[in-house]
Write a protein that binds this DNA or RNA. Sequence first.
DNA 1: CCCGATTAAGTCGTACACAACTAATTCATG
DNA 2: CATGAATTAGTTGTGTACGACTTAATCGGG
Lengths: 169, 169
Amino acid sequence: MKSTGPRSDTVSTTGDFVSTAGAEPAQGYTLLLDDQLCFALYAASRAVTARYRPLLEELGLTYPQYLVMLVLWEQDSISVRDLGAALQLESSTLSPLLKRLEAGGLLRRERRTDDERSVAIRLTESGAQLKERARTVPMDIGDAMGLTPEQHTTTKQLLRTLTANVSQV
Amino acid sequence: MKSTGPRSDTVSTTGDFVSTAGAEPAQGYTLLLDDQLCFALYAASRAVTARYRPLLEELGLTYPQYLVMLVLWEQDSISVRDLGAALQLESSTLSPLLKRLEAGGLLRRERRTDDERSVAIRLTESGAQLKERARTVPMDIGDAMGLTPEQHTTTKQLLRTLTANVSQV
DNA sequence: CCCGATTAAGTCGTACACAACTAATTCATG
DNA sequence: CATGAATTAGTTGTGTACGACTTAATCGGG
């Protein structure tokens, strides 16, 4: 296997399969699972989450909960709305998740007095302390990913471009 | 926001790390959300799935169901086990999903006679016919992703490398 | 040939994810 | 300043995901 190297061959639009001219939707768009970037993305995302699981379990967090904590460790107080904007999650996902984190004693939710529609999320002492224990997590995962710094940066950049394009209305 | 932060743009790649020795876990591993490749991956995956949603809704499929159908359109009969291997999903995820596809009349599940532990998944006529209506989906999504063919290939390759590394036991 | 180990599919419990909706509050414009 | 539109958080219903477990069937060494 591995016909040529990684990259370099640009999908061989070089015409080594010319047949099936009619019904095929032109240039390399097939229904083959292995052709789909979307599947590579979906599989990679779940694989990374799975890799996080044992590490985060020690901290008593799930992966989405960990992402919420990342935001809160940067910014001690934030509204549900802004948290949703940062993580690109709906309130219908965040509300129960935040309730669980509150039950776990990591944060508090308090209605804002200046705008009672809004709820401020704030770390507890316990939640703030968890940051220390989480310090090594990004490095552990980074190692497991096994990409060179250049590959790491390239991937992040490509995924951001992709997300921005795909999110376009 | 964008409060400068310590070393805001990590994108150097040009080989100039300043290596903040001491408490910091060396070379660019921070707890900042925007530094995390894992988050870019998670966000991209959900954004792509969201983009698929209206297209697949017309076919009466969810995104994971669509992936199952991709496999079946390639290979008319397959065991739950092999399907799980192809999609990297557990039987506890697939079993209910397949039950829903069966209820929708797209496939049948029948116990194998030569090994009664195994269940063969097989397309119905209706399931096979759906392939035609799905033909343009990959192209529609491909367009929405807005990557050049080179970027597309590179991303797919990087994600596969990442998945393989991260899945290592 | 027998019995413990393995394998295949499925159930159950927990936690996302999101669309569609609701309730409460604030905004904006006449 | 009154009231309809917009905003914010939350609820409900459906469908993944996965670990831990169960059940049934097959395998393999003595």
